[in-house]
Amino acid sequence: MKNKGITLFLIILAVIIVTSVTFDYYFSKPDELPENPYALNINLLEKIDNSKILYTESRNFGLNFTEPSGICFSEGQFFIVGDQKMQIIDTFGKLKGEFKFDQKPTCVYVSTQNIFVGFRKSVSVLNREGLKMNEWNSFSDSSVITSLAEKSGILFVADAGKRIIRKFSLAGNPLGVIEGKTGNDQIHGFIIPSPYFDIAFNEDGELWVVNPGKHALENYTVSGDLRTWWKATSVRIEGFSGCCNPAHFAFLPDGSFVTSEKGTVRIKVYKPSGEFLGVVAAPSRFKENSAAPDLATDNEGNIYALDMDKKMIRQFVKKEK
């Protein structure tokens, strides 16, 4: 036979072509592909030692909201805002009332006399029967109201858009703002990269504010002077991760902090001093990269988290030893 060498060469080439195609075909199946070499492994952060988890989930209240946004617990009732409405639900899950608004509320705070509902650029004051008593519209266009708290006749409005806390009398008169700027080098105003800016009063009547950009919780006097603060930055469970956490917090009856984080969602408790105490809910309980649940607590120390994805209130109770 002529050209034996060439024929052999050609056959080898044909074999190479066929194998290349076959290999490519089989190894580009989704489960045959190589692992992502550039994976950013944040799953490791989500694995949490069971001994650190101090709470267990006991009840869920499925809500009739498409987009819940805030929760407050007062006198045995949940006040939940979202969509264009507020619902009052008792601890048995009975719906006690529903109020409709013409815009989307962002947060709610309930005092003994009033219900305060925050919208993006306004605050409505309702009495406990749900009748509107007052509405304050004197906010800036770039305002984003994210949290409300009232103490001795002064309503504190956290405005994440303007990065300040505004004070109002219940009659609606502005009483000044807290900018959080002090001479102290450590703190330079509120750093709020995303619309999460929570404030609350503890049992002792101290105003606490989240400074999410600093991963800090700061205690101010009513006049706006920084009294004390603590911070915890870490991707590990002990601290707060990301650019703007904790997103929400609440106080337990003993003055401990309950915090919730967005992105890698987790709920934790810190001692009143700011020392890490334990985990309420690990990230595995939430959808990946979701919104931070708003928090509420009751007098017995139960924690209620408003899950924005599952649209329900999730009750966490302390594990029994």
Binding site: K94, L95, K96, G97, E98, F99, K100, F101, D102, S124, L126, E129, G130, L131, K132, M133, N134, E135, G172
Partner: peptide, 26 residues
């Protein structure tokens, strides 16, 4: 009819008002 006259009130804002007695419990 229960609404106390108040300058800033816009009655349309509260579309449905329910006091707890009026609610048929679920």
């Amino acid at each position: 009819s229960n609404v106390k006259p108040n300058k800033t009130i816009n009655p349309e804002k509260v579309v449905t008002v329910l006091s707890s007695e009026k609610i048929v419990p679920v």
